[in-house]
Design a protein around this nucleic acid. Structure first.
Lengths: 79, 79
DNA sequence: CTGTAGACTTCTGTCGACC
DNA sequence: GGGTCGACAGAAGTCTACA
């Protein structure tokens, strides 16, 4: 009974983990993904949610597949 | 040279394929996913794009993982 | 059962600025 | 390098209704 993690929070955690793993800055990822730096910040903090297209853009910027990202999110959500 | 398919179109095709595979109607899927029937219609026709939360809701309604859905989308997009 | 249309609400995503 | 704020355009998602 301890699963109070939202989709936003789970995705944010995965995004931050993957980004820091590559040693990239939020700004670099934003540029590579064609997104705004402030939006990456909000995503990592679990304040916003991505669309499917955004997940795909981020996956390319991070050098992983989008399905792998979603898989990690599902794990955090308890799947 | 196979980047003519948009994310919307790829997702719509995957969604329709999975839904018809279960024999469910758009209305049933909508109810199970907690979404609107007209929105499912637009998603399948590639006129709209889902957020990550919507992909997760639909995956539960369809009895597959969200990562599997995204994997199929990536395949259609040429990954 | 599905497509479409309009009107509407909420949220994604951008941008400039400042800390 | 990252957090935050406010203003904004556009898209996600709902609902009623009719073909």
């Amino acid at each position: 009974m301890k699963r109070r993690v939202t989709v936003e929070q789970a995705f944010g955690a995965v995004l931050r983990e993957l980004r820091t793993g590559t040693g990239k800055t939020q700004e670099t990822v934003a540029l590579d993904a064609g997104l705004d730096r402030t939006f990456i910040s909000m995503l990592e903090r679990g304040l916003r949610q991505p669309t499917l297209e955004t997940v795909l853009s981020l996956s390319r910027a991070l050098g992983v597949t989008a399905s792998k990202i979603v898989e990690k999110v599902e794990t955090l959500l308890g799947n």
